[in-house]
């Protein structure tokens, strides 16, 4: 911001790596805002990354995700580990603004120097969130946080996208949110490494638990493979597969949370032992590269296409004057990017 004195990116990185939280906060802002500086930051930090275990927490609004994240972070702190938290809320499509309210549920973590919480808005559309989330994860990872917890918006595609950002995905359910089964959306079931029935002291918790159990027990087990959840029938007990366990928690009181954290650690262990971690890491790398490459190519293209031509082409496609394939060819040609 122009009202601020701006230390250089290099100064910020040095300070942040030395434990300066203010510098860390500014680095995240730079990365979130994207642009030249962001690239510089990520390039500098990448060698420091790869140590954190990344946990995605997803589930419908009202399941108590923030409270669960709060309780999990406390548990990790008791085990002597540091925790970075990314809490995501939606951007208003009308104003571009956002209300980020997840911190309300994370009050007891605030004074702890071993915890860093960052609220993020979904901002851009179409994969923009996943990209920004991955970038912020990289920053927190580079800063040496042992565990990074990502709390998703809990609606739409973002719920499924978390699978490509996290090592372990926790899907949170709660009783009383309507139809027991319906609440567990298609697609979400497949990405879960661990299920949680939160608010387990509420009426209906057993029903939700059993509904989940039935769905998992009767259905084929799933293994994630190359970014896609695949349904694989596998005899029970084989350690190639991970059978997603179901936990009951009362996050407000911390009940069931130590067991949940144990399960995350077991899952981490499983990933490493089974070679799945390496697979997921290359999957994450492919994902990351894919995003960056797309953005870079798109940027390159737009730089080369004369001003206004892109918009004009869009209009022509909309008016059915040309087809989209011809339009792409045309744009590639203008940018001198067509295949030789």
């Amino acid at each position: 911001m122009n009202t601020r004195s701006a230390p250089s990116v290099e100064e910020l990185i040095t300070a942040a790596l030395a434990g300066d939280r203010r510098a860390l906060a500014r680095l995240i802002t730079i990365v979130e805002n994207d642009g030249e500086q962001a690239r510089a930051v990520l390039q500098r930090l990448y060698p420091h990354t790869g140590r954190a275990h990344i946990v995605g927490i997803t589930g419908a609004p009202g399941t108590g995700k923030s409270t669960l994240v709060n309780a999990m972070a406390r548990e990790y702190r008791q085990r002597g580990m540091t925790v970075g938290i990314i809490a995501i809320d939606p951007t208003s499509p009308f104003s571009g603004g956002a209300l980020l309210g997840d911190r309300v549920r994370m009050k007891d973590l605030v004074g702890d120097p071993g915890v860093y919480i960052r609220s993020m808005a979904t901002r851009g559309s179409l994969g923009g969130l996943a990209r920004a989330t991955d970038d912020v994860v990289l920053v927190l990872d580079a800063m040496g946080f042992d565990r990074i917890l990502i709390e998703t918006v809990g609606v739409g595609q973002a719920e499924v996208d978390i699978a490509s950002s996290a090592h372990t995905v926790i899907v949170v359910e709660a009783p009383g949110l309507g139809d027991d089964i319906q609440a567990i959306k298609a697609g979400v079931l497949e990405i879960a490494d661990i299920f949680v029935v939160n608010k387990a002291d509420r009426e209906g918790a057993d029903r939700t638990f059993m509904a989940l159990q039935t769905m998992l027990g009767l259905g084929p087990r799933t293994v994630r493979h190359h970014g896609r959840a695949m349904r694989v029938d596998m005899p029970e007990g084989t350690h190639e597969g991970w059978r997603p366990p179901i936990f009951k928690t009362v996050a407000t009181r911390g009940e069931g949370v130590p067991e949940l954290v144990d399960a995350v650690e077991q899952h981490r262990h499983f990933l490493e032992e089974s070679g799945e971690m390496a697979r997921r890491e290359s999957e994450r790398a492919a994902h990351l590269l894919d995003h960056i490459l797309r953005d870079a190519l798109m940027a390159r293209l737009l730089e080369r296409v004369p001003e206004g031509n892109f918009e004009a082409t869009v209009e022509r496609v909309a008016a059915r004057e040309i087809d989209p394939y011809a339009a792409v060819e045309h744009l590639m040609h203008e940018a001198a990017l067509e295949a030789e």
């Binding site: 009202g62 409270t67 209300l99 309210g101 309300v104 549920r105 009050k107 407000t252 009181r253």
Partner: peptide, 10 residues
Amino acid sequence: FGEWEEPVWF
């Protein structure tokens, strides 16, 4: 009894 923390609604 424990203490209550409300979910946030705007």
